[in-house]
Design a protein around this nucleic acid. Structure first.
Lengths: 242, 242
DNA sequence: CGCCAGAATTTTGTATACAGGGCACGGCAG
DNA sequence: CTGCCGTGCCCTGTATACAAAATTCTGGCG
């Protein structure tokens, strides 16, 4: 395997190890030995160690005092808290965007995304794929509207917490019928958040963005109570023990 | 240098390199070469690289596309945003603590800290050293009151952003006279936050904690406008350009 | 005199070697 | 039979070796 891109082995280690952890291939609590994992992923310990450090930072692994690390365990409360934090930070980004104002260019970008989402949730030409992609775009652009690198980075970081990302519950076609009305509601919230930002209503923008994140909480509760067999479709949910 | 503690070289690399960066010994924008720095700190590239990765994550260094990294540059706006984020997250911790309630044990702990702070700011027996230490304790305990590992971790992370930590402006004895009234005000806010938590007033607790973080902003503005020659006493402020 | 090409050198990314410490297993004593 | 200790294996942390990429320097050409 040659080095076509910068840090190819490290990138591969990070992606593959993260996959193994979030999809439950390696059960929560398992101790990871560097040598065995390096063997399994066909690379040396150096980039693997780097990847493990990173995953510890992301919260997917936890370090053992004596050395090495193990797959982290989460409670449902942890997931809810992670969603709460993402909501709080997205809310802050929305509030700052409203308070400081946004550029015409970004406003136009956001307008396009929202128009696309309107189409995607239109019952006549409902398009789940598009929705997922555009929803992602929305949540990637929103932090940038704050105009702050620092804020954007922290929102992105919070979105990496297990099962806290805006698209975490958008896997699996099986759930489309269940979520269809939820998506319409979500899109309405998208529009309201953007309007509040344009109207310079900081407090309202913040509250709306927080409430929007609660949709993820509702989806989580819906899945675990109504469709428990689909729970392992949500990345990170495999790590939940109680 | 023997390995008495776990990861001794890495810990040393992290501490020493971070010091060099935050106190301005290595100017913002400087490219760091691993070999030179390893030589300078008298250790091998492996633990040094680990430390650099960590500092990139903390935001003190930034990676160069081509490889390696350089000391990050900050604007004053970045520092203010970092303080804002810390305030928002501390506010969330306070709100959750109020909403969920706290244990008698932690309540007692917090009571002790606040009593100590009352003594420290008492004009009769004013004690700056004690204040700094107890203020630190307050800000370490507050996130834990939320009862959430995840929230506590994210608050701690936000406090590591350059010049955003609660004690960032508590260096340097020279400023004691200037800050004396400010400390009294801060302690009053500490008390109010705790009372709001005990009274289960989540919104008020959140707002107060946010406002409390604004004190750091005021201190920053005071130092830069009134005492610019003391600016380099504040860790991280050396990285601010323009 | 400036600019570009190519070689030398530096620097990173990855692999591997090595040493110290922890943990497990087995033997020995009570 | 059970508990404690010793020994050996394995695992981590650190150092170092090596190759590919990048940067710098130099010499030649326009």
């Amino acid at each position: 395997m040659s080095r076509h891109t910068r840090q190819a082995q490290f990138a591969r280690a990070l992606i593959e190890l993260r996959s193994l952890v979030v999809d439950g291939s390696i059960p929560a609590g398992t101790r990871l030995t560097e040598t065995a994992m390096a063997e399994r992923l066909q690379l040396s310990r150096t980039p693997l160690r780097q990847a493990m450090d990173r995953l510890v930072d992301e919260g997917l692994l936890e370090r053992i005092e004596t050395g090495g690390c193990r797959v982290a365990r989460f409670t449902m409360a942890d997931i809810l808290d992670a969603i709460e934090i993402r909501g709080v930070l997205e809310g802050t980004a929305a509030r700052l965007a409203a308070e400081r104002g946004i550029s015409a260019e970004r406003s136009a970008q956001m307008g396009d995304i929202l128009a696309g989402l309107d189409t995607a949730v239109d019952p006549a030409r409902f398009d789940f794929e598009s929705y997922v992609r555009l929803n992602d775009d929305f949540h990637r652009l929103l932090p940038e509207l704050s105009g702050s690198e620092i804020v954007a980075r922290e929102v992105a970081r919070a979105s990496r917490l297990p099962a806290a990302s805006p698209g975490a519950f958008m896997q699996g076609q099986e759930l489309i019928p269940d979520f269809r009305t939820s998506l319409t509601r979500a899109q309405h919230q998208h529009r309201c958040i953007f309007e509040a930002i344009l109207a310079r209503e900081g407090t309202r923008a913040e509250a709306l963005a927080r409430e929007h994140a609660r949709l993820a909480r509702m989806n989580l509760e819906y899945i675990t109570t109504q469709r428990p067999n689909l729970a392992d479709r949500v990345p990170g949910l495999a790590l939940v023990t109680e």
